[in-house]
Amino acid sequence: MNAAGRRWIVRLGPLLGLAGVVAFFAVLIGSPERYLSATNLRVILAQTVIVALGAIGMTVIMVSGGIDLSVGSSIALTGVVAAVALRGGSPPAAALALGIAAGGAVGAVNGLAITGLRIVPFIATLGMLGIARGAAKYLANQQTVNVPATWINELAVTVPARRWLLVAPGVWITAILAAAMSLVLTRTVFGRHVFALGSNEAAARACGIATGRLKIWIYAMAGLFFGLAGVLQMSRLRQGDPTVAAGAELDVIAAVVIGGGSLSGGEGSIGGAMIGALIMAVLRNGCQQMGWSSYVEEIIIGAIIVLAVAADRYRISRSAEPA
């Protein structure tokens, strides 16, 4: 097969996987009309939002050859920040902005640690995983933070209050942001430099790209998405919970990898990552519908992550040219 054809398969791979998983459960559950009903699709989409938002940011980071393990802690921290602000009487818009900004700040610190202290991303963000989680618990006084009812609580509901929206506003926000970031990643100078950084950092530097500053931007920008995910997480729970989303980074990384992202950088797409997030949500939902225990779900998702990374390795070995 020629190179172009192979690339199409790679691109379509995640989509075929999604179709396969949906078909699998539709058949298994035995009543496709119920499984594929508007209600259940709404549930799946609403469940996807948080992982999908995280995956937008993580795609940018992983394309640049980095990784961020602090996503789950960032989600908890930013959710608590927004909840504390709401409880203190802030207008919802300000609380939303504060939560997002807190995510950006966490990301910027990650970027600074990676470039300034010359720590590999894995370690820098592993440290942040603990720091952000601790900060969330401190801010929340080790309890959940209850918030007054505002429109923020409507962002991530399964059935939107305004019926004409069809799905929760958070789903629309995610879709629009995904489309926008997809364009940024593929059509802008910034996006090209992100790919160049992940593909060959030495070459990027030799071509005059300020790789240090670029990395700080990448982590800070991804942090904004984690912040928004944190606010939506709070919106779903209707409270700020400092212990929420533990391990979410693994779901997010898995979504990016299932969607064709490479752990060694230079490859990945927002669209693929969104499909990856959907695959995981469909799997979760399907297992719940089947009444399977959560351990079955955990085993299946674990296996999918390993298989997706194995596919990633295989792809790299296939694309390696004989020198």
Binding site: R192, F195, A196, G198, S199, N200, A202, A203, A204, A206, G266, E267, S319, E321
Partner: peptide, 8 residues
């Protein structure tokens, strides 16, 4: 050693 980005 060539200094190129293979993915681009």
């Amino acid at each position: 050693e060539l200094c190129l980005c293979p993915h681009l």
